[in-house]
Design a protein around this nucleic acid. Sequence first.
DNA 1: TGCCTAAGAAAGTAATCACTTTCTAACTAG
DNA 2: CTAGTTAGAAAGTGATTACTTTCTTAGGCA
Lengths: 204, 204
Amino acid sequence: MATQASDPVRRRRHGKQLESALLAAGWDELLEVGYARLTMESVAVRARTSEPVLYRRWANKDQLVLAAFEHHRTANPITIPDTGALRGDLLALLTALSEALAGFYAIATAAAFSGLLADTGLTPSQVRDSVMDAQQLPRVRALYQRAHDRGEIDLERIPTAVLELPFDLVRHDMLMDLRPVKPARIRSIVDELVLPLVQSHQAR
Amino acid sequence: MATQASDPVRRRRHGKQLESALLAAGWDELLEVGYARLTMESVAVRARTSEPVLYRRWANKDQLVLAAFEHHRTANPITIPDTGALRGDLLALLTALSEALAGFYAIATAAAFSGLLADTGLTPSQVRDSVMDAQQLPRVRALYQRAHDRGEIDLERIPTAVLELPFDLVRHDMLMDLRPVKPARIRSIVDELVLPLVQSHQAR
DNA sequence: TGCCTAAGAAAGTAATCACTTTCTAACTAG
DNA sequence: CTAGTTAGAAAGTGATTACTTTCTTAGGCA
């Protein structure tokens, strides 16, 4: 009777491994119930730990949520494709963005609206820039630059509004539907909107 | 000393006039602090009344907020312009939409995300459809139909994605910036995106 | 003029939840 | 192997706030 056979081995996580689990739990909680209904206790329970473990790392709920965003973003990097053609690149990138970020945008905007940023005074667009596009923008630019170098497009003649159009629309659709954009819609954006516009501005 | 000269006349509002003031206060509160931080007390104070006056009309906070949406929407109808040309119509309508709805979309989405719709299970797109576009869509359609009848465009050849593009982008920008879309951006959407696309799809 | 409904004020109740405190024991580092 | 750190559990505190109760009195309506 010295050792209880029914007692499960109680392993304790430490350091980075634990922190990663905490942030993942925070992210899942955001996805499942949203910022407004996420509580420190619900995150702790989901991570199979207790609240002080959270408070030892983050001073308050907002800090935890922001850290969960950052963690999820860096843990799920988006690779910019190189298919050799503008159309293929756009289709691949929009699809990747859509799949990776549908939840992300929804959650981030939700949190922003719910009061997360009321203190910091950031607007959703600043969130978009700082959390999402700041890293993505130069890489997107590179995608277009490659098309330019191949002679597919003339970057000089194409308005910024055209270049940003597909990303604006995908972001819009993700916000509206809270799920990845349908492949057919992505093809429509590329084939019925972006490519005709590129052609149109090329011609004159 | 029978009447106190310093005592301000304490007027009491009743019926529709009072209700309107309550809903306006609710809307202003939504605009100023957002759904998450709106409290029944803050609305009551803003309306210069007390909480029971609110609870006699709406069973809970959500009902009050929903009623405030509806009140604001019906109190600020959007008139669809008829300038005689597609370009003028689009510029005018997008501007009107932008000015009237920048706050509306921001607030509605915020509330939806903050948990307002968690009970009802609606998604933002359903909110968009039920609160906004359901009424607007046929009227927008009429705008394009007039252009078609004038011979400006051939509706048969133009993909839906093109027709919806300006509204998607204006909605996107409003959500991102929480303020009306700049006139220059609206002109860009019309002149650099919609009209070239219409031409492009017309030609082939 | 005089009911009667409802406005408005004040105070209270109960639930939620961010954040804290205290303690024990598991793990790490040296 | 030992000492120091921190995970994890349990309980509690205080602030907020949705919603209620009670009472007084203004003003609509006959």
